[in-house]
Structure formats: structure tokens, C-alpha cells
């Protein structure tokens, strides 16, 4: 049997197919202006016996495909457990939202937190900041890691932080140091969320932002422990949905 999971987020859509407990296929595309259309073309030529949807667009998918749905919270927890059975805490920072999940000793969700309505500290925040400093998204983290000190950014709000950055650039500050400051600010936001659910050992960092090396390093330093990062951190939600598609009768 082939089980598929689709994660329809506000920025991107991921699709994973599981066969014999292994990931047989995985694909990704942008959500764009018409996520359902893009989801459909992503699924072109993909075969599966059952599919479950998660993410922001899960209910649209449910209507169109009459498929079961799970929340991102549950999907990320399941996906992370599949990849790292020992996981007890999950941090997911995606394109426009972020969440922290803690599991109990049996691996059941105990508590979770989500960011509020604004994009502070999410992928969107880093993307806009990278652009205003003239970096490509891929170079942003590595550039920040080259900084010798970080310049504190006082504003968490994307709009205010952007004008703060413009001011610092005009003052002739080192771009890399500003970049490090921005990463620290995103990490502080994540730590705030983690503290509310209490961090346990074996923390998995997932979501697209986990591909940013500077974010990973700063988190490890702040938490004083090694964090686990999936090979494809943005696929964890779709993987979780595929695992749940298997369970649903």
C-alpha cells in the first residue's frame, strides 16, 4: 500500500508518499495564488492508495478530494517521531507560522504553542530581512555566521525591523553583523515559545527555516544541547500526514 500526505501551507506545498515504511517519493511546490490548482499539478502522475491532508489549506483539500485531515501540530509530531523515535520536543518554523510541541513519555502530544497572527520570527521575516540586506535566502545564514559580533535589533515586528535595518545599513554597519542580529531576534522568538511548553531532550527542529545554519547554531547555543535536524525539514508535515493516512480506516 502507498500512503500519501500533503501539507498545504501558506507559502509552499509538500507531498510525500510512503511505501513499506519508507519514503518512496517527495515533491514540493509554491502555494502561489491558487493553492488547490498547484496541489493538483503537484499530484500529477503520483500514485497512492490513500491520502491525508494537513496545513493551512487542509480543509479546502478535504472538500475537493474527500480526504481525511490532521492539523499541522499532529502531523509534525508524527513526522518527527518517525524520523527520530526518541523526540520529545518539536520546533517548527515555516514560511508564515511557527509552533512548538512537547510530547510525553509515550510520545503523545502534551502541549503546543503557535505564533500569533504576525509573521515575526518566521521564514517570511528572514526572507524579507535577507532581501533588505541584499542577500539571497541561501546566503543569509552563512553570511550571518561570519559576523564577529551581533548588532542587537530591537524590533520583532517585520515592518519596524525592516526600517531599523535600513537605518543600520545607512550608518555603515557591517551587513553580516546586522544579519546575525536578525537571526538572534528570530531565535529569541522561538525560545519564548519553547519556554511556554518546557523543552525536553531530543529536540527536533523542522520546517524550512531549519535549513538555515545560523538559526540551528544559535538555537543549539541558547539551549545548550544538540538539536536534531531532518534531512528534509520542510517535508516533516507531509510525512506525518502520510503516516496518519495509514492509520485512518
Amino acid at each position: 500500500m502507498r500512503y500519501a500526505g500533503i501539507d498545504i501551507g501558506s507559502r509552499s506545498i509538500e507531498l510525500v508518499v510512503l511505501e513499506n515504511q519508507e519514503i518512496a517519493e517527495s515533491r514540493q511546490t509554491d502555494s502561489g495564488f491558487n493553492p488547490m490548482e498547484n496541489a493538483e499539478s503537484l499530484m500529477q502522475g503520483m500514485t497512492y492508495d490513500r491520502i491525508a491532508a494537513t496545513g493551512y489549506g487542509r480543509h479546502l483539500f478535504e472538500i475537493a478530494y474527500n480526504s481525511p485531515t490532521v492539523t499541522e501540530i499532529k502531523a509534525y509530531a508524527e513526522g518527527a517521531k518517525f524520523l527520530f523515535p526518541q523526540v520529545r520536543t518539536i520546533l517548527d518554523i515555516g514560511g508564515q507560522d511557527s509552533k512548538a510541541i512537547s510530547l510525553n513519555d509515550e510520545g503523545k502530544i502534551k502541549k503546543f504553542e503557535m505564533n500569533d497572527r504576525c509573521a515575526a520570527g518566521t521564514g517570511k521575516f528572514l526572507e524579507i530581512m535577507a532581501r533588505s540586506l541584499g542577500y539571497g535566502l541561501k546566503d543569509f545564514g552563512p553570511a550571518a555566521l561570519e559576523a564577529r559580533k551581533d548588532i542587537q535589533i530591537s524590533s520583532m515586528c517585520t515592518v519596524f525591523a525592516e526600517s531599523e535595518v535600513t537605518g543600520l545599513v545607512a550608518k555603515g554597519e557591517d551587513r553580516r553583523e546586522i544579519a546575525l542580529g536578525l537571526h538572534s531576534s528570530a531565535v529569541r522568538r522561538a525560545l519564548g515559545m519553547l519556554k511556554r511548553i518546557s523543552v525536553n531532550d531530543s529536540l527536533v527542529f523542522a520546517g524550512g527555516v531549519a535549513r538555515n545554519p545560523c538559526m540551528c547554531q544559535l538555537l543549539e547555543k541558547a539551549l545548550e544541547r544538540k538539536i536534531l535536524i531532518p534531512e528534509n525539514p520542510q517535508m516533516v508535515g507531509a510525512l506525518g500526514a502520510a503516516l496518519l493516512a495509514r492509520e485512518i480506516k
Partner: peptide
Amino acid sequence: MEDLGQLKTRVEAFVEL
């Protein structure tokens, strides 16, 4: 009604647990 989607996700996740 701005936070409808977000609330729905949080409540659904709470019910799941």
C-alpha cells in the same frame, strides 16, 4: 473573524490531543 483559521487549527490540534 481574522483569526478564524488560526483558531481552528489550535482548537483542532487540542481536540486531537
